[in-house]
Design a protein around this nucleic acid. Structure first.
Lengths: 116, 116
DNA sequence: GGAGTTTATCGTGAATTTACGATAAACTCC
DNA sequence: GGAGTTTATCGTAAATTCACGATAAACTCC
């Protein structure tokens, strides 16, 4: 950490949105989210069957999604059942909607205007 | 690359969405996108003023956003004016809307049902 | 208690990301 | 042509990511 503040104070929303986006920044994790979205829940084993990656790799991706708060795991021995974390999933959807919808609510022209 | 295919064939949409999400996976880049969204366009210099990071760092973040297709730069010597890439921005918005809205269009109960 | 099942964690290596300062590139204006 | 302005790129170092195999942990069932 040098003189320029690497510890900038971003707004909570910006951090949250970036956090969610980062977790979604891999095609395998998108696939997992889509699967969970489509069929409510599933086990790690189900994923290792439909995704041709090592079991440890998939477990790692699940951890990323869990750490970001997008999914949650219910331990149900000897398996673990994963579902979307509905609260955070909804929150993420709202944040994305917010940033994308903003463009629509503004003036439609949106030309590059002011130069200095 | 070993025997398990690291070169899995993801759907184009999944790759696109992951690509956009990854580019959005940093608070500074979210901030930049918000700024561009709010005021149509701006110059690199404007950003270096409002974001306390080295100019080279911000330029790098701009490159990430540009490579992902979310923004575009019009070179206007000696400055460069950045705007959202409206087409891709809209496409990204649609992809995010798609994956998040899916949950809403489905059965509201969404309980963890089928166990094997 | 031992065998089997399922999943997370550890250790590792290659690649990518993030930040910086320094430098080059492109162009204007005197 | 030279000084000044603005921005991208290079080089670098530290940290993180992504994939793997091997191993440990947790629990069931015989």
């Amino acid at each position: 950490m040098s003189r320029t503040l690497a510890n900038v104070a971003y707004s909570t929303d910006e951090k949250q949105l970036a956090n969610f986006a980062k977790a979604m920044g891999h095609p395998v994790r998108i696939q997992i989210l889509k699967l969970l979205n489509a069929q409510a829940c599933c086990y790690t084993g189900d994923l290792t069957e439909s995704i041709p990656l090592a079991q440890s790799t998939i477990s790692q991706h699940l951890k990323v999604l869990k750490d970001a708060g997008l999914i949650q795991g219910e331990i149900l021995p000897p398996k673990v059942k994963y579902c979307l974390n509905q609260d955070n999933w909804t929150a993420a959807g709202r944040l994305f909607k917010e940033i994308f919808d903003f463009s629509l609510s503004e003036s439609p022209a949106k030309s590059c205007s002011s130069d200095e």
